[in-house]
Computed example of a mutant assay.
Amino acid sequence: MPDFHHLLLFVAAGWLLNLTPGPDVLCIVRHALRGGARAGILAGLGITAGCFVHVAAAAVGVGALLAASATAFNVLKWVGAAYLAYTGLRLLFARSGGSPLDQAQAGPLGAPAAPRRVFLDGFWTNVLNPKVALFFLAFVPQFIAPGTADAAWVFVALGVLFNLNAIPVNVGWALAAAWMARRARVQRGLAWLDRVAGVLFIGFGLRLAWAESPSR
């Protein structure tokens, strides 16, 4: 394991990276705005579960396969881009209506978002993004000294620490978005926020679709 100084640096870098807005943060904020802090936290837990999948995959070599094989990278890339675009379109054409309180408790199509659906939305948003797998392959090894015994287990331990370290940040995003949702102006604009979120998700999907395989 890294020494205490490098471990603190790893934790601080993880916090900064998790504070950076992206599809995961947008997923948390969207659910928190619509369903409150609990929904946002649940989406964040789904994202964390997806990150654990990437850590496990990287540990067994799947991440290295994505980095080395353009075909494997492109398959996952297009599936992930399609999912982000689908989510964006669903939000963009969501029906609006009802009282602000009804809207705040509703899902993208006006129906209450079930906890399982919220969790899986966070999970798939993360796990279908090959860039997350490549991120773990690029970021975590920087904190593993060359020649470290059992480097694979150290990688897994640091990956687990990174994911656990992200939970407070995700909770913070959820609480902040839920607090915003209680403001009258935000409640009146929830339908427009869905449209904005839809455009952003489509944009994230297009950006992922244009991403080139690192093997090129």
Rank of each mutant, 00 (worst) to 15 (best):
H5M: 09
H6F: 13
L7P: 06
L9G: 14
F10M: 08
L16T: 07
D24M: 03
R30S: 15
H31M: 01
H31P: 00
A32L: 00
A39W: 11
A43F: 05
L45C: 14
L45V: 14
T48G: 15
C51P: 00
F52Y: 13
H54G: 10
V55R: 10
V62R: 01
G63E: 08
L66Y: 12
S69M: 09
V75A: 14
L76M: 11
W78T: 09
W78L: 15
Y83N: 06
A94G: 15
S96L: 03
G98N: 06
S99Q: 01
D102V: 13
P108S: 13
G110D: 11
A111H: 14
A113R: 08
P115K: 09
R116A: 15
L137I: 07
A149W: 08
A152P: 03
F155G: 09
A157P: 07
L158I: 06
L158V: 09
G159S: 03
N165D: 13
A166M: 10
G172N: 04
L175E: 10
A181D: 09
Q187F: 01
R188G: 10
R188A: 11
G189Q: 13
A197I: 10
V199S: 04
L200H: 06
I202S: 02
I202A: 10
G203Y: 05
G203Q: 07
G205P: 05
L208Y: 00
W210F: 13
S213E: 00
P214F: 01
S215C: 05
